[in-house]
């Protein structure tokens, strides 16, 4: 994952106590489980899982300052580029492998998804929904690659090289015969609402999935 993207994540994380998509995630993680957080940023989720749920966690991160932040929080952080895959980890080494807002930024999301479910019994993934109505409207009316608070980059310098919609992701899960255990969507403020629940692919800005093999 690019440093740019990590910085965006870090900014988002530092703004709130625990982002509500992270709050959703922590409800899906069992107490005392073994967790691997891919692109763990400054480690807010890991720190929360460690103190509140007594989880044993490792975070993978590439950005220097984020790694230092994790060290300061007393977390296990391992410098690693997600594009290099998870070959370092053994099959079923973890209970849950989490990846927030990084799926769209890796070179082969499909391969990484396989790897996540090889290493973990479950995977929790969040990503920005390219089917969100504002994104569709932007492309329709301006005829240009959409930019927004969630997607602040130009087409030529964006780390988000594999944008997808909810439907795309669910199609991938079907092709891989994965079971979707939970699915929820939140808006750009990471809040759930009735409208996003009714029309997720149109009104949901960020997707949160929990899948297993």
């Amino acid at each position: 994952m690019s440093q740019q993207n990590t910085q965006i994540k870090n900014q988002a994380e530092s703004q709130t106590e625990l982002r509500s998509d992270l709050n959703i995630i922590q409800n899906w993680v069992a107490d005392k489980s073994q967790v691997l957080d891919l692109g763990c940023g400054q480690g807010d989720l890991l720190a929360h899982l460690k103190t509140q749920k007594q989880c044993k966690g490792y975070g993978l991160e590439i950005h220097e300052d984020s790694i230092v932040s994790c060290v300061e929080k007393g977390l296990n952080v391992i410098e690693h580029n997600l594009n290099d895959g998870l070959a370092h980890f053994k099959d079923n080494a973890m209970d849950t492998v989490i990846m927030t807002q990084a799926l769209q930024a890796v070179s082969r999301p499909d391969v990484l998804l396989d790897d996540m479910l090889r290493v973990g019994k479950e995977a929790i993934i969040t990503f920005p929904n390219f089917g969100y109505w504002r994104t569709r409207f932007y492309l329709l009316t301006k005829g240009k690659m959409p930019m927004s608070k969630t997607l602040p980059f130009n087409w030529y310098d964006t780390p988000n090289i594999h944008m997808c919609t909810f439907r795309d992701f669910e199609k991938l899960c079907r092709e891989k015969n994965l079971t979707i255990l939970n699915r929820t969507v939140v808006d750009k403020n990471h809040q759930k609402s009735l409208s996003t629940s009714l029309f997720p692919n149109l009104l949901g800005e960020i997707a949160v999935y929990r899948v297993t093999k």
Partner: peptide
């Protein structure tokens, strides 16, 4: 070094690694 890190994770040890 990563061989050491991998073994430590496998052995459930707390580890921080920087390259």
């Amino acid at each position: 070094s990563e061989e050491i890190v991998d073994a430590l994770v496998e052995a459930d040890k707390d580890v921080t690694y920087a390259c």
